[in-house]
């Protein structure tokens, strides 16, 4: 069984929620990045999203844009990132998802990519700008190599569309909490009880999504601290944190933040 599916089954049996963490591979260079990822994995991540840097990240906010630029400036590329994944796999059993824009994967070649990613111990792919309609080309080799295609669902996705997209989805659903790019907002996305309408909206949307699929639901975009993570974990099966981890890694506070988030998510 794929490690992602296995992880969610185990957590479900234990009645626990999952913490999914994103870090840009190669930020600010491969060596530092690998050290940071090991730190995050050792401190409580249940699933890792390994970000492939791209020159034109149209769905990312300033923090992940800057991380990608640092990684590219250091010369990081997909081949080296897969080699890093293989090294991580030797030390950790944690599921790893390659998180990328379509073009670096397309240029590498979808067949070669799926073969090499599976060999490196990657469990799934999440391609931000590859909607369901364009994904057939990639899904075929993914299936052959046992990689899961993680489907994104947005607040703009209608229930009919969600049902159609999720009919073939694997592992879990990534639910995007906000209309917008990745990163923290000035206004908190999931304010604590003080501002119930936003939180209620999230609950409503996630409840609605449950009627479209039996897959576990991970909620992400705009979650940065324990309180927000706890709030999201009350409704979703997993919480995704990206920009806040990238920032914390830069400030040397990564382990601390991962522990805070893990405690919050696992405590729900």
């Amino acid at each position: 069984m794929n490690r992602i599916t296995q992880t969610f089954q185990t957590l479900r049996m234990q009645g626990r929620k999952a913490l999914i963490g994103y870090l840009t591979a190669g930020d600010p260079d491969l060596k530092t990045s690998e050290r940071n990822i090991r730190l995050a994995l050792a401190n409580g991540l249940d699933i890792l999203e390994l970000g492939v840097p791209f020159s034109d990240p149209t769905a990312d906010g300033p923090v992940i844009q800057a991380a990608g630029q640092r990684a590219l400036a250091s010369g990081a590329n997909l081949k080296q990132i897969l080699a890093m994944a293989a090294r991580l796999r030797r030390s950790f059993k944690t599921p790893m998802i390659l998180f990328s824009y379509a073009n670096p994967l397309f240029r590498y070649g979808y067949n070669a990519l799926c073969r090499d990613a599976a060999r490196a111990g990657i469990d799934g792919l999440l391609v931000v700008d590859l909607p369901y309609e364009e994904s057939a080309e990639l899904r075929t080799p993914m299936k052959r190599h046992g990689l899961l295609f993680i489907q994104l669902i947005a607040p703009t996705t209608s229930p009919e569309r969600a049902r159609r997209l999720l009919a073939e989805a694997d592992g879990f659903v990534y639910y995007i909490l906000v209309k917008g790019v990745t990163g923290l907002r000035k206004r908190r996305v999931l304010p604590p009880q003080a501002d119930p309408p936003m939180a209620e909206n999230t609950k409503k949307n996630i409840d609605r999504l449950r009627t479209c699929t039996d897959l576990p639901i991970a909620a992400g975009f705009g979650i940065g601290d324990g309180a927000q993570a706890r709030e999201a974990a009350r409704h979703a099966d997993a919480v995704v944190v990206g920009s806040a981890l990238v920032e914390a890694a830069r400030k040397g506070r990564l382990a601390e933040l991962v522990r805070e988030l893990a405690a919050a998510v696992h405590g729900v």
Binding site: L152, A154, T156, T157, R161, I176, K179
Partner: peptide
């Protein structure tokens, strides 16, 4: 119907934009 001119074109955007 999905906007392809031969192998080119299509719709490569984040899911948030697909319904729009």
């Amino acid at each position: 119907t999905r906007g392809h001119f031969g192998p080119y074109g299509g719709r490569y955007v984040a899911e948030t934009l697909m319904p729009a």
